[in-house]
Amino acid sequence: MRVALAAAVRDLPRGAGLAYEPKFDGHRLVVLRSADGVVLQARSGRTVTAAFPDLAAAARLLPAGTVLDGEVVVWHEGRTDFALVQRRAAATPARAAVLAQTLPASYAAFDVLELAGLDVRGRPYERRRALLVDLLLPLGPPLQPVPMTTDPDLAATWYETLPASGIEGLVVKRLDQSYPAGRRGWRKLRHTDVRDAAAVGYTGTPRRPLALVLVLPVGDGTPLVSSPLTAALRTEVAAVVAARAATAPAGATVTAIGLGEVPYRPLDPPLAAEVRHASARHPPPEVLRLRTDP
């Protein structure tokens, strides 16, 4: 199932016929409810049903032939916590059952693609939104429609106040728009401390990468060492390295905050990574995820 993507913008779009949704900081997830059961699909196309048994159980209450697009998040101390989502996504099936009890997931649905076996992607967003709300509101958590407004002033208030709850920005859609599968047909406004960077190398070993060496799109282009990778990201980076024909030796060095000069292994070509950072150097950039979409 090819999902819709969003193009980044620097300012809040305004105008008639626009809808605004909070952009949750989680993992993109497509829910497919068939007559035979439930499949949860990541943005990459990988099946992750076993990692989220709580969401799979909730999705069985959906009518057969339903496909939803949304974000899986984990709430902790009043805000969404991306590191906990990573932890859930990387869990073994046995561990996932335990984490479903201690770190329950929520599903912030923002579109319905199929309903009762009928493909509704060609219908306007306004109509799909109504179908989504009618479908999920009677069920309640953990499957919930994301908030939506057509008031740009309210959207601007969300943008300024919701980051305290872990919301990373806004997604803007046209009310008359069909579902743009595989295309950047939506727009996203993210807070400026979240941006894409080039991962030009990594510290540690090919089997256990510790941090990424990043070149940020701001500053003087000096490589920076990220904060330590989460377990899920270490696994993902190691898989990327293993898939490449040869592993570069750790011949280059880079300055790491608090550590001085450390060796690293170059990545050629570089990886694209989404990072969060408060300034160019302090604290170190935090890698949120690898960018696998085109």
Rank of each mutant, 00 (worst) to 15 (best):
M1D: 11
R2P: 12
R2E: 13
L5N: 05
L5P: 03
A7L: 09
R10Y: 00
L12E: 02
G15T: 01
A16E: 15
A19D: 00
Y20I: 02
P22G: 00
K23C: 01
D25H: 13
G26Y: 03
S34I: 02
V39E: 14
V39M: 09
L40W: 04
Q41D: 00
R46V: 05
T47R: 14
T47S: 11
A50C: 07
A51Q: 15
A51W: 05
F52I: 06
D54H: 10
D54M: 10
A57K: 08
R60V: 08
R60A: 13
L62H: 07
L62A: 08
V67R: 15
E71A: 01
V73Q: 02
E77Q: 09
A90M: 05
A90C: 03
R95F: 06
A96E: 04
A97Q: 15
T102W: 10
P104S: 10
A109F: 11
V112G: 01
E114F: 08
G117S: 01
L118C: 06
D119W: 10
V120A: 03
R123G: 00
R123S: 01
Y125E: 07
L131I: 05
V133D: 13
L139M: 03
P141E: 04
P141H: 06
P141T: 07
Q144V: 15
V146T: 15
V146L: 13
T150F: 04
D151Q: 09
P152H: 11
A155M: 09
T157P: 00
E160V: 08
E160A: 15
P163T: 01
A164I: 06
S165D: 10
G166P: 13
I167T: 13
G169V: 07
G169H: 05
V171I: 15
R174I: 09
L175F: 05
S178G: 09
S178Q: 05
P180W: 11
P180T: 07
R183M: 10
H191D: 04
T192Q: 15
V194P: 00
D196E: 15
A197L: 07
A199C: 06
T205D: 01
T205F: 07
A211S: 14
V213A: 14
V215S: 10
P217W: 14
P217H: 13
D220T: 15
P223S: 13
S226K: 12
S226H: 14
S227K: 11
L229K: 14
L233K: 06
L233H: 03
V237C: 04
A246N: 11
A248D: 09
A248T: 10
P249H: 09
A250R: 12
A250K: 12
G251K: 14
A256M: 09
A256R: 13
L259N: 10
G260W: 11
E261F: 08
P266V: 12
D268K: 15
P269I: 12
A272I: 12
E274H: 01
V275T: 10
A280T: 15
L290I: 10
D293Y: 11
D293W: 13
